[in-house]
Amino acid sequence: MSLSTTDVFDPSARWQLSGQVSLRDEAFGALAYHHGNRRLVFLKSPELVAIVRGLSQYSSAHEAINAFVEPSSHERYVVALASLFRSELLCGR
């Protein structure tokens, strides 16, 4: 049995960037730092940064992704957000 990477992250739910996280823009995307667990995470594309920053404006993660990337890349960004979720960067609202 294998668990899918999106096991607990529901992309049809409402999400936002955790209040404990700071983002610093970089040419490749951004650095995200979680002040609670002190983890540094790299957001490796400007699109991902735009989605993460925009999450709270949309009624689901799917919608936020649709706003910034082509449908053909949609799934990749669901996986990326799920991984940010596991690093405790995102929280529900």
């Binding site: 610093r24 970089e26 040419a27 490749f28 540094l40 790299f42 490796k44 594309s45 991902l48 990326a80």
Partner: peptide, 20 residues
């Protein structure tokens, strides 16, 4: 999003501020 090697290539060009 790219593999980690591409991230390393980016780091080679320096960041807006240091990490360490």
């Amino acid at each position: 999003m790219g593999a980690d090697t591409s991230l390393r290539d980016r780091f080679e060009h320096g960041l807006a501020a240091p990490i360490c």
